[in-house]
Design a protein around this nucleic acid. Structure first.
Lengths: 128, 128
DNA sequence: CAGAATCCATCGAGATACTG
DNA sequence: CAGTATCTCGATGGATTCTG
């Protein structure tokens, strides 16, 4: 267990870097959040973001492909015309979402502390 | 609580995006891991990475500044010559590290599953 | 409908050289 | 020692157009 913790340093393990990257990129967590629950089609998924901040199909496709490659999202194709493709979360994806939730919740809980730190830092910088 | 969970979608909250970005970028988590424990000086910190994958002072400086701005790392200057600057983790930083550890540990636990998903995906892609 | 192809702007990371 | 100043390069995000 302590040997595992040591892996937080060093990126000898590529998988770790990749999963952490999913947390950091702009869309992965949001897509995973939308894909949770009922299976959802590509265009419906795209529409979910239309209000807040629209995502291009180019970027949505790339994000989904990555998540599928990581085993977090599954893709099911129905051989009909027009095409029907459904995405949803895998077990691995659900666990990932759980951890993401935890950090997001923690961040929101301490939002005031973050903003205070930010203000103090800016004040120090301006002081010079 | 459920209203907080809703925030995983939508980036209305800038702080959330920024903290998740720290998890995702190449150096933040590793620097935080090294800064945990005893206070450490800039050059010593830089040396810690020299073996595995060296970090330029340019990048280390930027990473530390960001973490300081976020309130995860504190910076203490000693008015001596040559200069002496010590970095260490704040309380917020320790909590952040805790969550990062959790995800890293989880990732390593399921490393086999990730690699299997990867192989299957590549196989499917090649099949066409 | 579910993407693929093309092109462009921006940004993070890194190498290198220099300084109070 | 602890950075700053410049520059380059590749990856990410995005807009737009096209297609089986």
């Amino acid at each position: 267990m302590s040997s595992m913790n040591a892996a937080v340093g060093g990126d000898d393990c590529i998988v770790v870097r990749e999963i952490l990257s999913r947390l950091g990129d702009k869309w992965s967590v949001r897509v995973i959040h939308q894909v949770a629950g009922e299976p959802i089609r590509f265009t419906d998924l795209k529409r979910r973001f239309e209000q807040d901040s629209p995502i291009s199909s180019r970027v949505l496709t790339r994000t989904l492909k990555q998540l599928e490659r990581d085993g977090l999202v599954s893709r099911r194709v129905f051989p009909v015309v027009p095409p029907r493709v459904e995405y949803n979360l895998t077990e691995l994806g659900k666990q990932f979402l759980h951890y993401a939730q935890e950090i997001v919740d923690w961040t929101i809980e301490h939002q005031n502390a973050f903003e205070a730190a930010r203000r103090e830092f800016e004040a120090q910088s301006a002081e010079q």
